[in-house]
């Protein structure tokens, strides 16, 4: 485990903590896309099927269980919690995420890492994660004001994949020495989707202004 990978995982974990903190303390999920959260549940469930077949480390098992558990918890809060669900910005969350699921699944069938059920699902989860943030970004663009916790949540989520890119570069030279097309290209796409958001996030931070994305 190198420092970029660990920093990436911790950033990912922190983004989830920030989101859960927002939901639990403010009892509000305003500005959060339920569609993106649904996609993450699907991403984790399809990627971590190897929990049953392969053991890497205690850290690995623990993190996988945390990601599955927290993503289901967030989904549950937004969908079923008596108070929280009333704050869901349903009308703004209009992205057709089923198209993403279908598109990624077809892509995974065409270009899987390997032709087996678990490997196709693993590839699907990589493709889907790359675009899962889209409904959230669209929702932010439609929101009048973006609260700090929501802004920080999305920033940390983007930073996580950017750190993974550094981790892959590091691992390529020190360890693996092989090109990993599927995660690399997907990871690049995933990070690139945040470019616009990063720009406005850093600007608002430097100017001490409220974060706002131009429509």
């Amino acid at each position: 485990m190198n420092v970029f990978r660990l920093a990436g995982d911790m950033t990912h974990l922190l983004s989830i903590v920030v989101l859960l903190l927002k939901i639990r303390t403010t009892k509000s999920c305003a500005g959060i896309s339920l569609k993106t959260q649904e996609l993450y549940v699907l991403v984790f469930l399809t990627r971590y099927l190897d929990l049953f077949t392969r053991y890497f480390s205690v850290y690995n098992v623990l993190m996988k269980l945390i990601f599955i558990g927290t993503s289901v918890a967030i989904f549950w809060y937004m969908r079923y919690h008596k108070v929280v669900k009333q704050t869901y910005s349903k009308d703004l969350d209009s992205f057709r995420h089923y198209h993403l699921i279908l598109g990624c699944f077809l892509m995974a069938l065409l270009i899987p890492f390997d032709f087996s059920v678990t490997e196709v699902l693993w590839t699907f989860s990589i493709y889907l994660e790359a675009v899962a943030i889209l409904p959230q970004l669209v929702l932010l663009q439609k929101s009048r004001n973006i609260d700090n916790l929501t802004g920080n949540y999305v920033f940390l989520l983007g930073a996580y994949r950017a750190l993974y890119l550094l981790n892959w570069i590091y691992r390529f030279f020190t360890e693996i020495h092989k090109i990993r097309w599927i995660p690399w290209i997907s990871g690049l796409v995933q990070t690139a989707l945040y470019a616009d958001f990063f720009y406005y996030y850093i600007q608002s931070w430097r100017k001490h202004e409220e974060l706002k994305l131009p429509a």
């Binding site: 990912h12 392969r54 480390s57 690995n60 390997d114 981790n167 092989k178 990993r180 995660p183």
Partner: peptide, 10 residues
């Protein structure tokens, strides 16, 4: 498999 050894990632 080119990718098997790095499936330890999350």
């Amino acid at each position: 498999k080119s990718d098997g050894i790095s499936k330890d990632e999350l």
